[in-house]
Amino acid sequence: MENFTPISASIGGALIGLSAVLLMALNGRIAGISGVFSGTVFAERGDKLWRILFIIGLIAAPALWALTQGAHPPFEITQNWSLIIAGGLLVGFGTRLGSGCTSGHGVCGLSRLSPRSMTSVALFMGAGMATVAIVKSFLGT
């Protein structure tokens, strides 16, 4: 557990929570990234601009952070292209089929004790952990 960073994780998490609260208190919307992002294309007309601006903010934040810190946040990805493509397809299709991801179900849903979100989080956490274990045993790492 030498990479464990509980303080920055808690502060970052609190900011994610603050973002969810801002979007609810000001706009009355759930901060679910898969739904917000998908809606930039598929939502009804008149319901798109705020989504696009939220996504712009999401992209701009680490870039602005990099400007002040002089370095990008750490980023490491080692998977081959087929795993990256398969992962992207599954994440895109699965989050829409299941009506949410780590933010919509994980943060917003759990905080209002939604039984659907509790089910979703248990399943995607379990599936994610099982997948990592299986991939590791196949790749022998």
Binding site: I33, S34, F37, I55, L58, I59, A61, P62, A63, A66, H72, P73, F75, I77, Q79, L83, I84, A86, G87, G88, L89, L90, V91, G92, F93, G94, T95, R96, L97, G98, S99, C101, T102, S103, H105, R116, T119, S120, V121, L123, F124, M125, G126, A127, G128, M129, A130, T131, V132, V135
Partner: peptide
Amino acid sequence: LALGAVLFGVGWGLVGLCPGPAISALTF
């Protein structure tokens, strides 16, 4: 709900990216 969550979880476990971080990492 259940099938969607499992498919998402598998994709998440394959790469380590869910939608928020994937979008946020666009510039780097």
